[in-house]
Design a protein around this nucleic acid. Structure first.
Lengths: 334, 334
DNA sequence: ACATAAAATGAATTATTATGCAAGTTTGAA
DNA sequence: TTCAAACTTGCATAATAATTCATTTTATGT
């Protein structure tokens, strides 16, 4: 637990399965059973130095992950205020003290923790794995069973670079694995260049299966964002053009849920663009019992306010600053 | 990261909010940014000791969590569970994606790899080479020296077709060679039609040598199977008749070790059939220091459970499905 | 305000973990 | 096969973290 800490994701080549077994075993003995390296070394017939090295490897391979979760209840006033103001089931506000590089990371981790209690309620969980926050959450999720969740389905097609798509798939899988559920992918571009291509995509059996499942989602991780480029997205990445985005904004859109646009009151903004998107529809989303949003950061202020106004969110995990903004907004608006 | 590890869910009373923030900050600095306790101490104007204490608190309050995520295809939790539930020295669970057919092959290969560390402890190794699993293991074994094993002795006479007998002999030889030891064969039918023939067989000098050695076996590859025809065996192949098998089952037998029958509790089922078998006796087996079983597949579920209940196994190599069955069985039974 | 118990703190000490280095192994090329 | 480069491994030791204990601070009852 020392200098190697920055754990910058080295990408060490794949390793022998036996090696993996060994590393995992050592990691469990140390981190779960709390045995000292010396004990483990003796038990396994190697030197303490080797055990130390195994543990380092375990970090590099992300077999062990250390996460820091801001405790909940740090901002009871804000949390209660949000719940009250927007009729939420619950709100979690996390401390994001210094302008940390990644709001997403912290929120993701916080979400993983907060939501253990929220993960009950139905057999189908919807996710949007391309969101950074969600991917961080996936990494930080602890394997847990007995949640009653049977399927984890992606609610939005691919956006962004192919690399991102791969990571998204991985995240979906991780979540599914952690919940001991089946992963259902939506491996198709999330935004099509024209309606015809969307029709083609809908011909695929897997796509159909996934889309059908979107009508039965019980719990959803709602993806909230501005009606604009944001995060890792750029023009051309399976995404809208600058003109298209300008057009929907002109039509009143201030944000979107899975690329379905909404105005400041949270009402759907119907445009042609809607026919280009492969994702859960607002209609379908309305029927989801528990809609969870994990989002924060200045870029999302307005979109979040709109989503909340439209009652698209039941559970919110966000950071202090965003929470403050939302509270001000609520008092002004009401 | 030391003695407090067992993380016995202390339930320390709620703590000051400011305190919580402090702890979280320290935890982040340490675990995410990788700063040493001394650095943090200086930065925050407290002693290193205090930082250490903060981190301990962070553990207790579960503000930091360390999770161990086993790589795909590894089941350390099942392994530990089995060891715990059945008092095993060690358990190896291998991933056997779908294809139930090749259980033997996969297990055999896995066993050859896993058991390199288990091959120590005494000069006499007992095997039952007619088992498919064991033959696969033999094929996959890599030469290794310095195991201390001097003799490899067959613990059960021939079963099955002559072709099978040949393969069995070959397997025994391969294992002996790989361990740089002497092979001791038991080339006689494993199940005699009547007690007299068994007496005749015992007249043979080689047989006598082998049988004498069975009293000195230090490590044994226990052969576990159902009290029935199984694998490549059919009526007439140096084997019991359907009636005989029905009879022992009626007497309570649910499985057998080298054709010595046991009931669901793992206790010997004494019958006349015992006098027809040329193999290590349960009495002798009881004195074997290290009893290794490599077995899996639905056909052996019950027999394995019985063998484990009777403490006939010290080391188990099996597949995920069987492991899961055994865990369920254990929790139900206890 | 005073005394006393409890909690917090840091210096020094002890325990644990990480790592430089040399010796032993494996791998690969000739 | 033979040699050398690339890896591994364990030992000794440096680096880091936990704990003890004496001291100070805080809380609480009188």
């Amino acid at each position: 637990m020392k200098r190697s800490m920055p754990t910058t994701a080295n990408r060490p080549a794949r390793l022998d399965i036996e090696q993996m077994r060994l590393i995992t075993k050592v990691a469990r003995l140390h981190y779960i059973h709390g045995e000292r390296q010396a004990e483990i070394a003796e038990k396994m017939g190697v030197s303490q130095a080797s055990v130390s090295r195994f543990l380092t490897l375990a970090q590099e391979y992300e077999i062990v992950r250390t996460i820091v979760v801001p405790p909940e209840g740090l901002y009871p006033d804000l949390e209660e205020g949000l719940e009250e103001a927007y009729g939420l089931d619950s709100a979690y506000v996390v401390d994001i003290s210094a302008h940390e590089e990644g709001v997403a990371q912290i929120l993701g981790v916080a979400a993983a923790r907060c939501l253990s209690s929220e993960f009950k309620g139905g057999p189908v969980l919807g996710v949007t794995s391309w969101s950074t926050t969600l991917r961080e959450m996936a990494k930080a999720m602890e394997p847990r069973s007995g949640t009653g969740i049977k399927k984890v389905v992606e609610m939005l097609g691919d956006l962004g670079s192919p690399l991102l798509q791969h990571e998204a798939a991985l995240a979906t899988l991780q979540i599914a694995k952690a919940l001991d559920a089946e992963a259902v992918f939506l491996r198709t571009p999330g935004v099509m260049p024209n309606p015809e291509l969307l029709k083609v995509a809908l011909g695929d059996v897997h796509i159909q299966t996934a889309l059908r499942l979107l009508g039965e989602v019980d719990i959803a991780f709602v993806g909230v964002g501005p009606a604009d480029f944001h995060g890792p997205l750029e023009e051309g990445d399976n995404f809208f053009s600058a003109e298209q985005l300008a057009a929907v904004r002109a039509a009143g859109a201030v944000g979107q849920l899975h690329q379905r646009f909404i105005n400041a009151q949270g009402l759907p903004v119907d445009t042609e663009l809607d026919k280009l998107v492969v994702s859960i529809t607002l209609e379908q989303l309305r029927h989801v019992r528990r809609k969870i949003a994990v989002a924060g950061g200045a870029a999302k202020y307005t979109a979040l306010a709109a989503a909340l106004a439209g009652k698209w969110i039941d559970v919110l995990v966000t950071d202090v600053n965003t929470a403050n903004f939302l509270m001000k907004h609520a008092s002004r608006g009401t």
